[in-house]
Amino acid sequence: MKTILMLTDFSENANHAAKTAAKFVPQLKADLMLYNTYYDHPILPTYAGGPWVVEEFVFQKDESTAQLSQLAIQLKHIMSGISKDDFKPQTDYQCGEGPLGKNMAVIIQERKVGLVVIGSRTDSAIDHVIFGSDTMDVIDHAACPVLVIPPKAEMNKLKKVTLAIAFELADINAISYMTDLGRQLGFELEVVHVSLPEENDDPVKENAVLAHLNTVKQEHITYQEVGGKDVIRRLNKLCKESCSDMLALVHHRDGFLSGLFDRSTTATALDNQAIPLMVIPSDQTNDSK
């Protein structure tokens, strides 16, 4: 993992997510990049019979850059107090005009981003939007895992993480990614297979996933099965009972091979989020590991 990309709109939730994630950046031996998107459209048509020049949009880029600089200084201070070896994460920042999801996708490719961090939305209407792009837009455009951190969640020490799988081939990459992350951050990985009563698993895929799980299974990896129709409710209950600090799942974009954890399931997980959520794209490449 070469770079961790932190998305911010400078809200309280976004700043909390950035500062929380900064605490484990040194352990991942990764550099840090902050990004903010803005809409620089100084002309709003059809106001009082003609166009209306809105001065605040003219200065949006300068304001964004200034706030990114201030946040970068705060994160550097946090990381400097945590780093225990010679590795010193580099911190950079950038802002851009336009849709967040599409802009982010370009940055992920150019900067070899291995993880995206974003603050979760709250129940208020405005928190469901990050300058015109919501959290699902970020997840749908990300070619690497996205960590969504809810308000007040702390990640000072991850002791246990739950990874939900559905016996799809994409689960193999997800298990490898979370296993590597567990080695770096020192958490126990709990792999949970979720089954639905009315569906039968593909035995070929099941054998392939279980075979891979056996090759990486070690002292800090456990496995269990869970069934039921309300997938997210059961997973949230399981995480609470097992004192899991984070839930991870594989996200399948809209398409023919949607799988159990499709877009609607991911959206439901975000709407019922109590602990940090790691969303791993089903088509992630090895570069994001």
Rank of each mutant, 00 (worst) to 15 (best):
S83Q: 12
K84G: 10
D85W: 11
F87P: 05
F87A: 09
K88M: 10
T91P: 03
T91A: 05
D92F: 00
D92N: 03
D92A: 02
Y93A: 00
Y93E: 01
C95D: 00
G96V: 04
E97R: 07
E97D: 14
E97Q: 14
E97I: 12
G101T: 07
K102Q: 09
K102D: 07
N103S: 09
M104W: 02
I107H: 02
I107P: 00
I107C: 01
I107T: 03
Q109G: 09
Q109C: 07
E110W: 03
E110S: 07
R111Q: 04
R111N: 06
R111P: 01
V113L: 00
L115Q: 00
V117Y: 00
G119P: 06
S120K: 05
S120P: 04
T122D: 07
T122K: 09
S124V: 11
A125Y: 11
I126D: 15
D127Q: 08
H128R: 15
H128V: 07
V129W: 14
V129S: 15
I130F: 08
I130S: 05
I130N: 06
F131R: 14
S133Y: 07
S133A: 07
D134S: 10
T135D: 03
T135I: 06
V138Y: 01
V138N: 03
I139A: 00
D140F: 08
A142T: 03
C144I: 01
P145N: 03
V146M: 02
V146P: 01
V146A: 02
L147F: 01
P150R: 02
P151G: 06
P151M: 13
K152R: 10
E154Y: 14
E154I: 13
M155A: 07
M155K: 04
M155T: 05
K157Y: 09
L158N: 02
L158A: 04
L158E: 01
K160A: 05
K160V: 04
T162K: 05
L163K: 05
A164C: 08
A164E: 05
A164D: 06
I165F: 13
I165E: 06
I165K: 07
I165T: 13
A166K: 10
F167K: 13
F167L: 11
L169D: 14
A170P: 09
D171A: 11
N173C: 12
A174N: 08
S176N: 15
T179F: 08
L181D: 03
L181V: 03
L185T: 04
L185E: 03
L185V: 05
G186Q: 07
G186V: 04
G186D: 05
E188N: 09
E188W: 05
E188P: 03
E188C: 04
L189I: 05
L189Q: 04
E190C: 09
V191C: 12
V192M: 10
H193I: 14
H193R: 14
L196Q: 15
L196H: 15
P197H: 10
E199S: 14
N200P: 15
N200S: 13
D201L: 13
D201T: 12
P203F: 08
P203Y: 11
V204D: 12
K205H: 15
K205E: 15
K205R: 15
K205C: 11
E206F: 10
N207R: 15
A208V: 09
